[in-house]
Design a protein around this nucleic acid. Structure first.
Length: 432
RNA sequence: GGAGUGAUGGCCGAGCGGUUUAAGGCGCACGCCUGCUAAGCGUGAGGGUCCAAAAGGCCCGCCUGGGUUCGAAUCCCAGUCACUCCGCCA
């Protein structure tokens, strides 16, 4: 949600931002027109209310004194009707204004590169060696998974339909090992507090983090209870502090949460239709921070570094890109994606997305802090980032650590979580 | 699923039609006072709007939305959420 006062002060900034990302800049002018009218009506209404309050008070005393107040009452009744009429207009204007405001995206940070889509994202750095044009081409994770009998897409489809998966034996354990490794790293070494939160939330929470009202079609909604399945644990975790005023000493807050994520993938028909890359349910370890406005960009850099470290631990080549304007999304002012190298697809695939949402979510969810006990509350900045997507991490491990004989080496950092297993082979797994 | 209770400021908590500008308390900050600390006294801490800004004024604000009234935290209706007891259940 944007601040109407900021728009009033600097309309060009918002017009330009909308223009740059292909929006309609005239929405800003429409809002400003409504705003002028709204304020005019408020001033008129407030004058009448003052009059009513004063006269009503006097009437109370007169009535007590036994005077006849019927004439003055009737007159005030008319004032009351006038006030009601003005309030109706004001409410309508505010509702109109809000419905535009709540669908306008967070303006981009100055450093965000221009561009329409992910093609224009700016590569910041790479890590690890990438082998281009290998011969033969390494196997895709879905083939490997089925050959090793650790992922079963057919039976998943039988039970739940397309875009689902079933993990089995060492595959299920590997998924669990990856998640536990991520959580241990972030809690023990990176200073995050672990949160295990509900994966069903009310619509207010989704409004707070910006999924609603604009992106309802991406969500799964329960039919009988008005609850939604979360698309990411950013939703419950960021909303933990909704409506709160935090103390300065509490900041920054660092949370890490593990949860299932549910996405309807509406409009994604045909894209990444095989395998684990684009599915209706996956698991994710999510990093969430609440910071002061002056430290949020610095904290974003640290968050990206924390996510990179666990990927480095898995010995996966990757790159970090700064996401361009057109690909930035709704809530982020600045966003970095981490993309692992898929040797089978010979391309980089997103495995983490780290965003500084500045005060955009904080304003929607009412998350504030006090700089000093006597000062007025200000909105915090919220950040979130994957640290990392677990299913895609499993893809990265399978594809990057496969051996010519069809086996897959398990990265050292995961071995303690795999009950001593150091590699996945068909024979070895069959024996287990 | 059944029965009940409740939702008031940073927190606790009173008020149940008009001296409430939301009592009182706690916590916090600043100021005064004071060898120091404590105590005491004072001030301050939600949103909107007017004024170029500050100072200040006014309006709103007691879960949300409607209604009754000259006047609603208070009365009426609907909804949301929370809690308690019983039943069922991993």
């Amino acid at each position: 949600m944007l601040d109407i006062k900021l728009i009033r002060q600097n309309p060009d900034l918002f017009r330009n931002d909308l223009q740059n990302r292909g929006g309609d800049p005239s929405q800003i002018d429409r809002i400003l027109e409504q705003d002028v009218k709204r304020r005019e009506l408020i001033t008129r209404g407030d004058d009448l209310k003052q009059q009513r309050n004063q006269v009503s008070k006097e009437l109370g005393q007169k009535k007590k004194a036994g005077e006849d107040i019927s004439e003055a009452s009737a007159q005030m009744r008319k004032v009351g009707e006038e006030i009601d009429a003005l309030d109706v207009q004001i409410n309508q204007l505010e509702a109109d204004q809000k419905s535009i405001l709540e669908c306008l995206p967070n303006p981009a940070h100055d450093s965000v590169p221009p561009g329409k889509d992910d093609q224009a994202n700016l590569q910041i750095r790479t890590w690890g060696a990438v082998e281009t044009r290998p011969d033969p081409l390494p196997k895709a994770h879905f083939d490997l998974g089925e050959e090793l009998d650790i992922i079963d897409f057919k039976r998943a489809a039988k039970v739940s339909g397309s875009r689902f998966w079933v993990m089995k034996g060492a595959g299920a354990r590997l998924e669990r090992a990856i998640a536990t490794y991520f959580l241990d790293q972030h809690t023990l070494h990176h200073g995050y507090t672990e949160i295990l939160a509900p994966s069903l939330v009310q619509k207010e929470a989704l409004y707070g983090t910006g999924q609603l009202p604009r992106f309802e079609e991406d969500l799964f909604k329960c039919q009988d209870s008005s609850l939604y399945l979360i698309p990411t644990s950013e939703v419950p975790i960021t909303n933990l502090h909704a409506g709160e005023i935090l103390e300065m000493e509490q900041l920054p807050i660092h949370y890490v949460g593990y949860s299932p994520c549910y996405r309807s993938e509406a409009g994604a028909a045909g894209r990444d239709s095989r395998g684990l890359i684009r599915v209706h349910q996956f698991h994710k370890v999510e990093l969430v921070k609440f910071t002061t406005p002056e430290t949020s960009f610095e904290e974003l850099e640290k968050m990206v570094a924390d996510a990179e470290k666990v990927l480095q631990g898995l010995e996966i080549p990757y790159r970090v890109v700064k996401v361009c304007l057109g690909d930035l999304g709704f809530t982020a002012a600045l966003k970095y994606d981490i993309e692992f190298w898929s040797p089978a697809q010979q391309r980089y695939i997103e495995i983490s997305s780290c965003s500084n949402c500045t005060d955009f979510q904080a304003r929607r969810a009412g998350i504030r802090f006090r700089r000093a006990p006597k000062s007025g509350p200000e909105f915090v900045h919220t950040l979130n980032g994957s640290g990392l997507a677990v299913g895609r991490s499993l893809v990265a491990v399978l594809e990057n650590h496969q051996q010519p004989d069809g086996s897959v080496n398990i990265p050292k950092v995961l071995q303690p979580y795999m009950g001593g297993l150091t590699s996945l082979t068909r024979a070895q797994l069959a024996a287990k």
